[in-house]
Structures are given as C-alpha cells and as structure tokens.
Amino acid sequence: MLSTALSIAIGLFVLAWLLNLGRLIFGPSLPDRVLALDTMYINSIALIVLYGIQQSSKLYFEAAMLIALIGFVSTVAVAKYVTRGDIIE
C-alpha cells in the first residue's frame, strides 16, 4: 500500500520535473529559464524526501536541506544578475 503510493508520488514529481526541464530547454526568455531551474530544485527536494521514506533512512534529510539552501541563494543571485548586471554592487 505505502510502497505503491510512494511510487505514484515519485512518478508525479518526476513528471513535474520533466515539464520543468522542457521549460528550461525552450525558454524563451532568461527569467523563464531561471524560474524553471527554481521549480526544478524544489521538486528535487521532494524527490529526495520521498526517496528517504522509501529507503526508511533519515540520512537524506541533510541533502534535501542543503539543496534548499543552495537553490535559493543561486536563484536570487542569478535574478539579481539579470536585473542589475552585477551580483554584489
């Protein structure tokens, strides 16, 4: 029961991730691509968390947390760069 539900949920997140990949490839503008990357990292966090449940292991929590931290900083840095042409003024 739980393993079926987990497989379905992982399938849904992978589908979402592939849609983000499509947006990342086809753009058309730079902010669109950054937004696609932003959504991708958030979906990846969920995938890692679900994989953790599947493996019954709490080790993956740290990886999810790190992706959350780094993903946010990189999105903001790139968005700032697109707006200002500079990250630290």
């Binding site: 949920a9 849904l12 589908l15 979402a16 979906n43």
Partner: peptide, 26 residues
C-alpha cells in the same frame, strides 16, 4: 494501516500539487 494511509494520502496530494504547478509553468 492508519499511519500508512495518512502518509500515502499526503505524499500523493503533494505530488498532484507539484505536478499542477509544473503544468502551469509549461
């Protein structure tokens, strides 16, 4: 089985919302 149901429902609801968000993006 109650816990199993609760976990299953939450992860599937999460998956559905993430998919809808990404459909929106696409």
């Amino acid at each position: 089985s109650l816990i199993e149901w609760a976990v299953s429902i939450f992860v599937i609801i999460g998956g559905v919302f993430a998919l809808v968000g990404s459909i929106g993006l696409a």
